[in-house]
Design a protein around this nucleic acid. Sequence first.
DNA 1: ATTTATTTACGAAAAGAATCGTATTTTAGA
DNA 2: TCTAAAATACGATTCTTTTCGTAAATAAAT
Lengths: 128, 128
Amino acid sequence: MSVQKSIKPTESELEILQVIWEKGSASVREVHEALSATKDVGYTTTLKLMQIMHEKGLVKRDNTFKTHIYQPAVTREKAQKQLLGKMINGLFGGSSTQLVIQALGSHKSSKEELDQIQQLLDDLKKEA
Amino acid sequence: MSVQKSIKPTESELEILQVIWEKGSASVREVHEALSATKDVGYTTTLKLMQIMHEKGLVKRDNTFKTHIYQPAVTREKAQKQLLGKMINGLFGGSSTQLVIQALGSHKSSKEELDQIQQLLDDLKKEA
DNA sequence: ATTTATTTACGAAAAGAATCGTATTTTAGA
DNA sequence: TCTAAAATACGATTCTTTTCGTAAATAAAT
């Protein structure tokens, strides 16, 4: 197994990845449209960012057509895992449990969500 | 209740806070010593960073003596909460449950930890 | 008291991110 | 074909973060 190249999207890049993950694939315009909903940003800014992301290998690009279509080159799960690990080490003294507790405590979850977690917890207990 | 001023330590600032939280309080030299263990950085760089952090109000400072002593002005918990929230929104589509699941799944916890989480989960269920 | 070591202050450069204007390319429609 | 609209390319600017050199202040040691 090769050593995992560590990805490190910036804040803005993460916002963009967010949209692309959501849609599966997207053009600059689509991404820009989505971003515009919540923040004020110019079209070319989004474009430039996405070009940079392409250079960095964060996204793939199909330029068969006039309008380029972008796809994630990194899975959401991988990004989550990576950043989560970093956060656990950097802020929670290496304890994922601490993180879980903090996360659960500082945000009320619905019954459904609690059940879902309970389910997972049961599974983990069985394994142990 | 006043509106919470959102703290936003940078990556480097977080490393420093880390050390100060750990020790409770620390001089620039102590912090620098700690950082040097894992990365290559100049003393004045650490100093400058800590001065900036002081300006920003991230740390408090006792300059009664020649060697200034720094203390956190923000609790670790608060920083955790804040960054966690950001991560939940930025990477987990706003679902803390998703984050919990990912965190639990990608790292095996001890029985004690699982029990601890179960405890918390029971409490949350009662409230609901 | 003088020298030496330690520390802080400060400015400025280097590096990294984000922003946008303008020019060029491409395509679709008139 | 010509024109207009939509898209990309790219340089330049601004803003933030990180880095460090140099000078001044302070304290300790000789």
